[in-house]
């Protein structure tokens, strides 16, 4: 394993005052970090467990309560606690040398290795009890995490393409600007034409609930409705109506961009609302599992 941690890195870590800035030439994502260091470590660990499980003859049968089972269980439980610590590491800006990218990389690959550690720990004895509950919760946490990895690997480029150098604030401002122009342009319209425009002005771009946010579909969009209403209306002055229709189309495009932005951001974040609470449920179930095992020793 020595070759996985170059000496240079170890010595840099120990150096308390780093005077020379680390400047990089290229971007290296968390999955590729240090030439897949953590993938290798985690893969090696899984391989070791699978091979040793096959070779070691635990009597009467492989079981979580054997010495081998305890070993895997201890590793797994400690790993779960360490993986949970990422949430703290991410937010605690201490001044010493660490890289959140390295933590994420280790989190992903070591987290995946829990599939083997946890499952092999059970000795494939599953049932309807608190022990299996902990295993199920762990697998769900890993699955949600897997979704997160896929989202992180595939969605950022789409987010970047969609926003096209605009910030979220600018997108909102653009919509408000169209609203102000619509407000002025809609003055000459007849009351029946004004009503849908006013409804479009009152629309909250954030409204629509979780389903709309995640799907990016807003079937009750007042701006689209206003466009339809004005396209078929014949009651106001044609020039004034055309101007309003043009503005509504621009607003619709701006809304579409913002909604796409919110959708991608939601897809990038939604899994955390599963991953994190399930982690706490897992830790609770894990505690119950450990206490009950020792209680019925």
């Amino acid at each position: 394993m020595a070759s996985l941690f170059p000496k240079r890195l170890l010595s840099r870590r120990s150096k308390a005052t780093q005077t020379e800035r680390v400047r990089e030439r290229r971007h290296e994502g968390f999955l590729r970090y240090a030439n897949f260091r953590w993938a290798k470590i985690s893969g090696g660990l899984c391989l070791l467990i699978i091979v040793s499980y096959a070779l070691i003859d635990v009597t009467p049968r492989p079981n979580g309560g054997s010495w081998y089972g305890y070993t895997l269980g201890t590793i797994g439980a400690l790993l779960i606690l360490w993986l949970t610590a990422l949430g703290y590491r991410k937010r605690k800006m201490t001044s010493d040398y660490w890289s959140l990218k390295a933590w994420t990389s280790a989190h992903v690959y070591l987290g995946l290795s829990l599939i083997v550690i946890g499952t092999w720990h059970t000795g494939f004895q599953l049932g309807w009890n608190v022990h299996t509950l902990a295993w199920v919760l762990m697998m769900l946490v890993i699955l949600s995490g897997l979704y997160g990895v896929i989202a992180y690997a595939t969605l950022p480029a789409a987010l970047s393409n969609n926003r096209d150098e605009m910030t979220q604030m600018q997108m909102l401002e653009a919509i408000r600007a169209f609203d102000r122009q619509l407000h002025a342009a809609a003055q000459p319209l007849t009351p029946e034409d004004t009503a849908p425009v006013l409804a479009a002005l009152d629309e909250d771009p954030f409204a629509g609930g979780i389903a709309a946010r995640l799907s990016g579909r807003y079937p009750r969009c007042a701006t689209s409705a206003a466009l339809v209403a004005l396209a078929t209306s014949r009651s106001s002055n044609a020039d004034a109506r055309d101007k309003v229709v043009g503005l509504l189309k621009q607003k619709e495009a701006a809304l579409a961009r913002l909604r796409q932005h919110l959708k991608i951001r939601a897809l990038l974040e939604v899994w955390l609302y599963v991953h994190v609470p399930l982690t706490f449920a897992l830790i609770a179930a894990l505690s119950a599992h450990i206490i009950s095992v020792f209680f019925y020793w």
Partner: peptide, 25 residues
């Protein structure tokens, strides 16, 4: 004066943020 170096780079979870000088980059 922060031993670990620029916080923006250290705190990036995916490795998207890097600091460069134009000659090297």
């Amino acid at each position: 004066g922060i031993a670990g170096g620029p916080a923006c780079v250290r705190a990036c979870p995916t490795g998207a943020a890097i600091r460069v000088s134009p000659e090297e980059f």
